[in-house]
Nucleic acid binder design. Structure first.
Lengths: 251, 251
DNA sequence: AGCTAAATTGAATAAGGTTCAGCTGTCTTA
DNA sequence: TAAGACAGCTGAACCTTATTCAATTTAGCT
């Protein structure tokens, strides 16, 4: 998760494959790709260790082994470079999440993995996603941005789990998926921050994480057994009653 | 460390209270405090409309009607000024929240109000709290900061509701309060962002907010399927249904 | 009024993001 | 293979802004 070459190499390979000209591994295109990867990697290192405000373009250039001006041939400005780092982060996060989720069977274990994986990655490269708000000039701009699309792609992993969970009855209720999504990721981000602060004193990070994730996933999946008891049927009735009641109340 | 705004204000207040001399409303202390208020207010306006990166110290000085250098007699630097704005925000938020909550009777209505109030305030002065991550140099520093203490004071409003709710049986489970707190505020912040983005297209902000808050509060209070007994739940639904129908009939 | 210290000022300084005129290596074409 | 064209690269100069500080003003006091 630390080094990007996997992602960059992959992208470069795709690009080469698309262009019909067979280029040797040291063609100009390849070198440019490689260098872009090096810059993003360097920028990530600096941003993670010194935060956005604490890293200068000169630091990134030195770390990447290029001149200051070179950065501007790859990214319009410091903000765009930071957005590039975030985009890269989301790409890696999406891929590793989907792979991990595919290896789990039940709705609960999928969500459990996703939550822990998210927490781990975000805490690992803490500061990367936290740059986002400061980089968002306006919501309308953000809505059309690359980062927004990649974020949507990432959370789609969660959305799919929820929809499948609904289909097989694991997830009760009929709330909008977006509501569950906000609760899931919002709670994880806040919980992650609390976790880090608490682990400054007591190193009991793992137990704390388990408590948070269990509670959160439990809230979504529900603890109801799968036996079709009278209680379950009553529950379903209550669900429907509540839904129509809400409609009445809203008008 | 030391974000001094609150520091200074508090110190000044203490000083006045201690000195037996009755100072007229145009004493030096008073004027200083007034000016500090003007600076914080000016800074808030600029930060809200232009974000942190987009506002210059010169802009704030002009808005506050003082010279550039004057800002630095009140705040160590731009970061400290921003922290002062955040501190001020938390103070107002805490007070208005507590007042509102005190006006509600049940656990559910208290949480419902708190959630809506939080969402409203944060969306209203959006960008203020979002500055925080960028201003946090290190977690250890933050743990001892004024802003952190004020945040703790603010979320204590929530903590109290939860504890009372537990005591009277409204809130089931024995999860750590901190977990519920992270879920509550995390979900609200994320949900708030989603809300704003969605309301760019469809102006259905109110209905969306209701859905989010209901689901979230329901998860905590336990009207949801897995926490309360079915009998209790049906009873509660019947109560609400009767009340709503009465309202409908009256109109 | 005169003294002291706190407040205030705004021009000077410094840091860092950004630009751009030139340089270098690679590709293309004859 | 040599010459021309050009993409990429360079880093010193430029410009905006946060920050400093010596000088000045103002308030409080005797």
């Amino acid at each position: 998760m630390a080094s990007e070459p996997a992602e960059t190499t992959q992208a470069a390979a795709d690009f080469d494959a698309m262009s019909s000209s067979k280029t040797s591994p040291s063609t100009r295109q390849t070198r440019v790709r490689r260098r872009e990867g090096a810059i993003i990697s360097a920028a990530r290192n600096m941003f993670v260790t010194h935060r956005y405000a604490g890293t200068t373009m000169a630091m990134i250039a030195r770390e990447a082994g290029v001149a200051d001006g070179t950065l501007y041939t790859y990214f319009e400005n410091k903000d765009a470079l930071a957005r590039g780092v975030i985009s890269d982060f989301y790409k890696r996060l999406t891929e590793s999440s989907q792979i991990g989720v595919d290896g789990k069977r039940t709705t609960r274990t999928k969500l459990d993995f996703l939550a822990r994986h998210h927490l781990g990655c975000v805490m690992d490269e803490r500061g990367i996603i936290e740059m986002l708000p400061a980089l968002t000039t306006s919501l309308t701009d953000y809505a059309g941005s690359e980062v927004y699309k990649l974020n949507k792609t990432y959370v789609a992993v969660f959305d799919r789990i929820v929809r499948e969970g609904r289909a097989c009855g694991d997830i009760p209720g009929d709330a909008d998926v977006s509501v569950l999504r906000d609760i899931f990721y919002g709670a994880l981000d806040y919980g992650g921050k609390s976790l880090m602060m608490r682990s400054l004193r007591s190193g009991a990070r793992k137990a704390d994480m388990t408590r948070l994730v269990d509670r959160l996933v439990g809230m979504i999946v529900g603890t109801s057994s799968h036996t079709k008891s009278v209680a379950d049927r009553l529950e379903a009735v209550a669900d429907r009653l509540e839904a129509s009641l809400k409609q009445v109340e809203d008008t």
